Simulated scan of single mutants.
Amino acid sequence: MRSAHGRSGPGVCTFRGCCPGCRADRLLPGRGATGTPICRDCAGIARDFFCDRCGFEGLLLGGRLCERCTLTDTLGRLLDDGTGHVAASLQPLVTSLKEMDRPKSRLIWLRNPNVVRLLRGGRRQHPAHPRRAALGNTLANRRPPA
Rank of each mutant, 00 (worst) to 15 (best):
G76W: 12
H129Y: 10
R132A: 15
L61E: 04
T95R: 09
H85C: 03
V115R: 01
L93W: 13
L90P: 01
V116Y: 09
V116A: 12
G84P: 09
L78T: 04
D80M: 07
T70V: 13
G63H: 14
L60Y: 00
F56D: 02
R123M: 10
G62I: 06
S96Y: 10
T72V: 10
C39E: 00
A46L: 13
G55R: 09
R40Q: 01
Q91Y: 06
R111T: 14
W109E: 12
G44E: 10
R53I: 14
F50E: 12
D73E: 15
R102D: 03
L59C: 01
E67D: 10
F49V: 00
R102Y: 04
L79W: 07
T36F: 05
R53Q: 11
D80K: 05
T95N: 07
S89F: 07
L61G: 04
P113G: 00
D81Q: 08
H126L: 01
R53E: 13
E67L: 02
R120I: 03
R124T: 14
R132S: 13
G55E: 06
P127F: 05
V86Y: 03
G44L: 14
P127Y: 10
R124Q: 14
R117T: 07
A128N: 01
G84A: 08
L65D: 09
R47C: 05
R106E: 07
H85I: 04
R68K: 05
R77L: 08
G55Y: 07
V94I: 09
L65K: 06
V116P: 13
G121S: 12
K104F: 15
L79S: 14
G55A: 00
R106Y: 02
G82K: 15
C51F: 08
Q125G: 05
D52W: 04
I108S: 02
D48L: 06
